[in-house]
Design a protein around this nucleic acid. Sequence first.
DNA 1: GTGAAAGCGCTAACAC
DNA 2: GTGTTAGCGCTTTCAC
Lengths: 333, 333
Amino acid sequence: MTIRTVAEHSGVSVAAVSKVLRNAYGVSAALRAKVEASIAELNYRPSAAARGMRGQTYTIGVLMADIRNPFFPQLIDGIDDVLAGTQYVPLIGIGRGSASVESTIVNALIDRQMDGLIMIGQRLDAAELEAVARATPVVVIGHHEPTATAYDSANNDDRRGGALVVEHLLAQGYQRPAMITLGRANLGRVDVSQERELGYKAAMRAAGLAHYSRIAPADDGLDDVTATVRALLESPEPPDAIFGWADYYALEVLSAVRSLGRRVPEDVGVIGYDNSPPCAFTQNNLTSIDQAGREVAREATRMLLSRIGGRTTAEHYVKLPVVSARGSTLRDG
Amino acid sequence: MTIRTVAEHSGVSVAAVSKVLRNAYGVSAALRAKVEASIAELNYRPSAAARGMRGQTYTIGVLMADIRNPFFPQLIDGIDDVLAGTQYVPLIGIGRGSASVESTIVNALIDRQMDGLIMIGQRLDAAELEAVARATPVVVIGHHEPTATAYDSANNDDRRGGALVVEHLLAQGYQRPAMITLGRANLGRVDVSQERELGYKAAMRAAGLAHYSRIAPADDGLDDVTATVRALLESPEPPDAIFGWADYYALEVLSAVRSLGRRVPEDVGVIGYDNSPPCAFTQNNLTSIDQAGREVAREATRMLLSRIGGRTTAEHYVKLPVVSARGSTLRDG
DNA sequence: GTGAAAGCGCTAACAC
DNA sequence: GTGTTAGCGCTTTCAC
């Protein structure tokens, strides 16, 4: 069944059917009604492959850097919120912690004629990102480049969030907060973690604790995080609180701290970032920074649609994060 | 840049280039080398949209019923393991706990000319699944229909796994194990949870505990699981162990049990299913059933490729699950 | 407002 | 072994 079937069934031309499909101008209400009736009766669905050769595929490509990060599902929800009312369908490609895999996936999305790309936590180098964005509409989530003109971005203020962490910990009476951050040896620029580090450092300085600033990188994975936590806790002047740069790190920090026999929050406070669902479990009860991911992703998706619609000036949306305090940092609670 | 550009650049016909692209028969080594050199030099990539109109798109559609289930990422890893060595790219669509959303997504994948579909935890009704499978190669993961001929399946033996849970709990001295299962009021058939229920019931019967069998449905979400756990624990003859039908439920059960002031494993044992990464955290230390998801998914992907390659007889792969024991069910450890 | 027809970039049948 | 060419199902001019 093709567009021709529909045209014959409703007694109009192929061009007329195409216009109806695309909500294009220049069709009378009567013709539109006839065509729509035929489409419904025949249960016709246009071939996205064929559409892609001339026009749009009505497909949004989503590059998700990591499928295990428990924060990302709410971003997908936000994308769905906006796309549900449209003809667009989001299709997700998974990058496995490597810029080269991400590059392959982005190319695959472009080859498949995606109408636009949403990149979540991408790690492409700046030049490649620019090149991709010149070829197709792009909005990034989790990448700070406020002067970029080729693409849009939607983020929370990660630098402010990093500072919030320190301010919260100090207010709770902790005096030596350390940070465990993403080991980036084999990655490109990952500026979300870097921004949080800058916020941490700035707040430590502002509090007169610059001399104590400790930022320890750990690779993703329980073993490496545990080793890093152990090294911190067994060092001279050990930290009394640990900030995991993202929740999925902080959950591993929790595990490591407890496996070393320390109590949370009495001996060591633990705080994450993203306020993802596992934070709320009794066994985690993890304080975190809430960045309203669903809303950020909605905004990103709206921006992408408006770019697909023709906008060419860049927009950069930034959401202010807030602390979501729980037991892991509340010693007197 | 099109296939024609490459043909001119290397001084051969477009048909020859096409054959090289598809690794088809009937090209000399010399011609192949020339063409490949041009492709590399020009950095040419064929348009998947155009390919899809006549032949394959080299794209595998993956329907993932739920993006929050922590077991699914290892399935994606298994798919990647097998596809990494091929031209195929997996693209994921997310079904949000509803058969109608899944139906929309499956249609979207078909419209985009995917060469084959992998469905993870799908909830389509049997007739629709059959119809889809007749239209395109399909393999399901997490759906038991061993007599299906239109599609393949790869699973673990969920019924055996449900029995393993009971056997393990009884061996640890628990005497009244209850099960919390997926609330299916608004879903279609979800036979993974049903199979586990059947295994639970059979093992309870075999142990002479048929009279105690308790299977309580709860909707996905901390509030409903907590309410269900509370109802169980406050009932006459409360259970001394709770089996969450999948890890993401069992983690909520852990949270609920502890929020009600009960100790794990002393007062209440807790066990999950899937042996996903969060089980290993110190704060969860959750016993679970390991179903070797990555291997199951690899097998599923191999089956899909062989179906795309022309196989028409159905294959149904079943993996035997094993217990992965941890602190949440070990009272004397 | 409507329709005829060219053509998007490939694949595959067929001719050489 | 290699090349020519018809079309896949749409979108988009451009006549009418």
